[in-house]
Amino acid sequence: MYNASDLRKGLKVQIDNEPYVITEFQFSKPGKGQSLYRCKLKNMITGVIIDRTYRSGDTFQTANLEERRMQYLYSQENEVCFMDVENYEQTFLTTEQAGESNNFLTDNLEVKILLFEGKAIDIILPNFVGLTVTKADPWAKGDSVTGDTKPVTIETGYVLRVPPFVEEGSRITIDTRTGEYVTRVKE
């Protein structure tokens, strides 16, 4: 159970039997008035964002969430399959639920799967993943319009901008939070 004064960005609470994460939080207290806890909450299943204002005395249920370590196995049609590394059970998420995580899933990648009341609802990727560049155009020197980067395609089909020295077949590290290039991995 949480109180209004526990509310903060990132806190997960249960409202109407669904898990929500606070994505924006503003504590307000006008003049000598009462404390207002203004929140934007994202439904962790549907992604729908709602605005709510709470007051001192309001209470919240904790969301029954669990994280389990799982390995990415394969994607098919509209679903993505993971295997629990402890009990080898398989779990499925829809491609839509996987969202941008699809860009960084490679065979056997270990991730955390977020479960709400036992049902998989989200993927928590490692912050940094290594991926192979499958398509890169040679660097055309003097092409200053695009600055000092060029677009490449990685094994998952994701396209991002990298420094010119990155070639086809290079392994690179990507920050999964931003989707941006971090460094080239020396083999």
């Binding site: 004064s5 939080f25 503003q26 504590f27 307000s28 207290k29 404390s35 001192s56």
Partner: peptide, 8 residues
């Protein structure tokens, strides 16, 4: 007590 936010 309890007053913490971007302005508190």
């Amino acid at each position: 007590r309890g007053e913490r936010g971007t302005l508190h």
